[in-house]
Design a binder for these strands. Structure first.
Lengths: 219, 219
DNA sequence: TAATATATTTAAGTTAGCCTAAATTTGTTT
DNA sequence: AAACAAATTTAGGCTAACTTAAATATATTA
């Protein structure tokens, strides 16, 4: 089923605000999130319910339905692949990608997304560390842990940051720490919780506990 | 001024059908080209005239105005850069690009287009051999002639096709004839107007007059 | 539990972009 | 030049996606 850009956005937001279907989403929270009037929300959710993409009962809020989830996964896949493209190939910074990816995600062409995926070597994570659904809409869920919990001698792949404020990102930049890097814990200093790590085989880098608590890795 | 996707499409088509402003375009020809009713055309051209993008007099047809030309150049630039990307990077074939580029050209981000242009090394021609306007909307014009007029022993660079129907593009594909190639005329058979040519120094390839009349080259 | 506040829906209206049918202008032919 | 044909515009309507204002349902609290 083909949706309009707006319908796709609603589906994406309902999927997000319902935590993937775990909770009901109120009309007001949608209106608030999307910056439209509650009346506009009611209008649209009635249409999406009609189409079977969401579950809706008058005055009771909405939830995403199975076909809606599939659609949401497709949109997330497109969005995150474009983000990878923008950052890896076009040298966008993390904070520049959102707006453009928001538009690119609505370009309708399965062939395009398949080729883009090939071109990018089938990435599993966006530059923000969000998992990229595969072509079937499946997300490979791998438990993420904070770097500070990794044991000495163990390695993991850096996939996300908890704090994506500019100062922290600049700090990471300066220390040559980037997403996708293989991190190895060389040492832990128990008296101040600082860590010595190597990034993709580099020599030891010292990072503070504040940093290691905000870096997410998979093993 | 920001235009809707539809308005951008109208501007593009009016620019095209007016030959860049050289002739008036009738309501009917627009309706025909766009596959909509003449009434819808009248609707839209009144709006575009209001915005100063086209020149319009009731019952007299329209022409592109200077601001419309600037907009058309911007759209053509986006379209053709995306075409280069799709073909060069994503391995699309000539006949696969049109539809997707048609969507991508409407993504609004000057930064995106600037970065894409950098990434592609500032190409001057699309895969169909159409010139790509620069960031100021200027087109570097070089006289194009049809291959059939090239003399024996002369060479030229293939930059465009007159006929870009799928069958013709597939024919070219099969004969290993591609845009950007250096073409040399080896022989001309006067009885059937067929030609022997070499492509980037290849051995002789025989092409029909129908083909050589539809291949545009610069010398 | 009744009164009140909040959330949600309905009603009526708007704009973009289309449609068909009717009216009007322009072009062509005799 | 009048009559007809073709092209164009106007009029009235439709859907998607919004708006504000009014009505109604739900939640809260005295």
């Amino acid at each position: 089923m083909d949706l309009t850009h707006t319908e796709e956005n609603y589906i994406k937001v309902i999927h997000h605000l319902s935590n993937g279907g775990q909770q009901l989403v109120s009309t007001n929270s949608l209106a608030n999130y999307l910056g439209t009037s509650p009346a506009a929300i009611t209008d649209m959710i009635q249409r999406l319910h009609q189409k079977g993409l969401i579950i809706y009962q008058k005055y009771q809020g909405v939830n995403i339905a199975a076909p809606g989830t599939a659609k949401a996964m497709q949109i997330l896949r497109r969005h995150r692949l474009w983000e990878v493209f923008l950052v890896k190939k076009l040298k966008f910074t993390w904070d520049e990608v959102q707006e453009v990816a928001e538009e690119l995600e609505h370009v309708q062409s399965d062939l395009l997304i398949r080729r883009l995926d090939d071109y990018l070597d089938h990435p599993s994570y966006s530059p923000h560390g969000e998992p990229i659904p595969d072509i079937h809409g499946e997300i490979k869920t791998q438990a993420q842990i904070v770097l500070s919990q990794l044991e000495i001698g163990s390695t993991g792949t850096l996939v996300a940051v908890k704090d994506d404020s500019a100062p922290f990102l600049q700090y990471l930049n300066k220390k040559n720490i980037y997403l996708g890097a293989v991190v190895k814990v060389l040492e832990k200093n128990s008296f101040d919780q600082s860590m010595e790590i190597s990034i993709d085989g580099s020599i030891g880098i010292t990072i503070s506990p504040k940093a290691s608590d905000n870096l997410l890795i998979i093993c």
